[in-house]
Design a binder for these strands. Structure first.
Lengths: 338, 338
DNA sequence: GTTAGCACTCGATGCTTACGAGTGCTAACC
DNA sequence: GGTTAGCACTCGTAAGCATCGAGTGCTAAC
């Protein structure tokens, strides 16, 4: 695998990413002036095919890069560490200065990424360390219900309507809230469950509410909540001829709709700062011709969130990596300064 | 337009909805035993075409119902008031008894509707009367930020992180919350804006917070928040041959992604309890071959929410209407009992 | 080692033909 | 007069077939 083969392979990948059409020897020798005739290229291509870097759809078509080729290509990109930070400013301007809910930011990020890349974008809210309760507060809603608001140490907010046994005024609820915060400050949901007996003692005469709280905690602890997830640009994939087959497209799109499965797939990347999974590497049959690129961002407290792009294997990896890099940093900055 | 024509038209529509293939005279005379020969049917079909109820893709194909035919069909359905309540129980069981956030219910409803109908479902949160503030509460989040929770008279919850000028402990925030609730109880967001000067006086020394509150109110009042919207089963449309054309499918899907536009379209139905818009009646070019069926549900306080189904013009109207009817009632019940 | 030349492959394109579903019309029938 | 059998006609679809050309692999000359 000498340097010339490398250059030729590079050219083939570039061309194929651009056009999506199998590329022939003449194209390479003319368009990317290598100073070599098509016949020579042909010989090299034959070698590259033997090495497993190229596939041939059929004899009289050109070659297309194999997953192995993309892998090499991407590894080279990543190793060189040359993820360009082009147009950094332009991208940053997509996020206005207004302080917002984390969820809004996540939704927005998915929009921005998908519209910049023209692929499908997925953004997952941070997750990692078990969140710990910082403050609890009950807000009266109606005679029989109250809103339970929990602020975690990560600054995340979670709320849920619960039934309270009897009508209580705002002050009573506040008093209970203080007690709850006192007892549960710093606790994970799991610990909160265990401490319920103590709570029940201190807040006596509210069995109904205690029960609801318990239900809420244990539900929260058992369903490892995937947190918030935003998906943008699902229809973008249809623009690529790889998915002009309606059945394939439908499979893909319905996968995008089963949020839990999708979240698992995206999270499958582990906590690496960058991950690129190419075609079969994704391990998902519906994504045999897709690649998934993910990047991590983090919030204060070390929780890790994931942003990702799903596109055809012939994806503009370099562009995607650079965009994810910038937006990942952007998000990290935003969540840390808050 | 005698009764026999009506029966024939009915049969044609039924068959076309079922198969999606232009239906010929022989099919009608055989499959739906009318006691008439295909020749007679042919004559009647010719008449029906002249009347504008049938279209002919080309000479040697069968006929397909026109939008006018569907309109007649649906009107008959609706007038007869015979929206069947079949399998009511089965559908109701999809909603468990647990009290939940309105948003969860809405998301869930979209899932249920799309999986029952196999079309695309849209659910919009209630809207109508300007919501009025019932309770306001500030919950400490970090040194510089607090979570502002607003409960409206409809039992809706809205929250937003705001910056507070200085560090304040929970009691201080609670005291301010009480003042805010006192001053703003029963106010719309618009009125809340106007009353800010009074607030500023009573809560002096917190310019930063006052400013943030004002920003929040005026933003909320100006962007007529579309509320929450859930979409389910967008990929279902691809199962119908009408959308096997990739370009068409892409247009449709990207329309489904531009949430604001979609919300406008669905809301375009007004507050009617049932609406059916067929093909061109939708007024949306991307939906020329689609129909939109909507139903209303309501919360205590008379706010109106909308549930809707988007599918091909040859939609199973009767089934869809019945499902929307049941789920609409279901939602109304759920939101009223709370 | 490189390259021109050439036979060969095989999908894509386009044309012709055959088929058949379905129509409209006419004439006979009840 | 409504109904129906019969038949010519239309037109989209599928199948068959020749053609084209992009691209290859191989060989022989440079």
């Amino acid at each position: 695998m000498d340097e010339r083969k490398m250059r030729i392979l590079q050219a083939i990948i570039d061309d194929y990413i651009l056009t999506g059409v199998p590329v022939g020897s003449r194209t390479i020798s003319k368009k990317y002036d290598m100073g070599l005739s098509s016949a020579t290229i042909r010989n090299e291509m034959s070698d590259l095919e033997e090495l497993g870097f190229l596939d041939q759809p059929h004899v009289s078509a050109g070659r297309i890069p194999s997953a192995k080729a993309y892998r090499l290509y991407v590894d080279t990109l990543l190793e060189a560490g040359k993820i360009p930070n082009s147009s950094d400013e332009a991208i940053r301007s997509h996020f206005s200065g207004r302080v917002r809910q984390m969820e809004d930011v996540i939704d927005h990020a998915a929009q921005v990424i998908s519209s910049l890349t023209h692929y499908t974008a997925v953004v997952l809210s941070p997750k990692g360390v078990q969140p710990r309760i910082q403050t609890m507060q009950l807000v009266p809603v109606s005679a029989e219900t109250a809103l339970l608001v929990i602020v975690t140490d990560q600054g995340m907010v979670r709320d849920n309507v619960i039934r309270i046994g009897a009508q209580m005024d705002s002050d009573t609820l506040y008093a209970i809230s203080r007690t709850l915060t006192e007892e549960l400050h710093g606790a994970t949901l799991e610990e909160a469950c265990q401490r319920m007996p103590t709570i029940a003692e201190r807040v006596s005469g509210n069995e109904r509410m205690i029960q609801e709280l318990y239900g809420f905690f244990s539900e929260g602890k058992n369903t490892p909540r995937r947190g918030h997830m935003a998906v943008g640009g699902t229809s973008n994939i249809l623009a690529y001829p790889e998915y002009s087959d309606v059945d394939k497209a439908r499979n893909f799109l319905s996968l995008m709709e089963t949020r839990d499965k999708l979240a698992d797939i995206i999270r499958g990347s582990g906590g690496m700062s960058f991950t690129v999974r190419i075609g079969p590497e994704t391990g998902v049959p519906e994504m045999a011709d897709c690649s998934i690129v993910t990047a991590a961002y983090s919030t204060r407290g070390g929780q890790q969130g994931t942003i990702g792009v799903i596109g055809p294997t012939r994806m503009q990896y370099s562009k995607v990596l650079s965009i994810l890099n910038i937006i990942g940093h952007q998000l990290t900055d935003m969540f840390n300064e808050e």
